[in-house]
């Protein structure tokens, strides 16, 4: 791991904790959310060694992190949304969103369009990952519920 990567992992982690506190997540749940934030960029660094397409990496991480959020939410008996959001904060394409804006204001259409499309790609990859995990969680929930009902 290079120095920049370590800085990114740590600062992403701090950012996640900051957001978790703003959302008033406390105690065990704060720790869970913070670990998610650490995990998300650690995964990015690790996966990016093997996969070059950023949207695909984003998709994989979004799947893994939302699955983690769903599981921890079941364990701690609390809603999932807070965990997903705080853990995925480092992946939010704030940088490319900003540069899209800058290119738009400069009227540089040739730079603006690819950047805008790329930002959309990253955001859609994130969304898709969350959807996959959420849907699977719903299906699992149904299966478990049915099993419990059959036992009774």
């Amino acid at each position: 791991m290079t120095q920049t990567e370590i800085i990114q992992i740590l600062s992403g982690f701090v950012g996640s904790i900051g957001f978790a506190i703003l959302f008033n997540i406390r105690g065990k749940r704060l720790i869970t959310a913070a670990i998610g934030g650490l995990l998300s960029w650690l995964l990015f660094v690790l996966i990016s060694k093997g996969v070059s397409s950023e949207p695909i990496i984003y998709f994989i991480i979004a799947c893994v992190i939302s699955a983690y959020a769903e599981i921890m939410a079941r364990v701690l008996k609390t809603p999932t949304t807070g965990f997903i959001t705080t853990s995925l904060i480092p992946l939010i394409p704030g940088g490319s969103l900003y540069y899209t804006m800058v290119h738009a204001i400069e009227g540089d259409l040739n730079a603006f369009l690819p950047k805008a499309i790329y930002t959309m790609e990253l955001a859609s990859a994130l969304a898709l990952g969350i959807i996959v995990s959420t849907t699977f969680a719903r299906v699992f929930n149904k299966l478990i519920m049915n099993k419990v009902k059959n036992k009774i």
Binding site: F23, T81, T85, T86, L88, G94, Y98, A127, I130, I131
Partner: peptide
């Protein structure tokens, strides 16, 4: 200015709103 603005814009991003939007849309 880039880095300062990016860092600060991150605090404005409606993260919960977006996450909920996705989860609501697809459920």
């Amino acid at each position: 200015v880039d880095m300062v603005i990016i860092g600060n814009i991150m605090t404005l991003i409606p993260g919960i709103g977006l996450t909920n939007a996705i989860r609501d849309l697809f459920t």
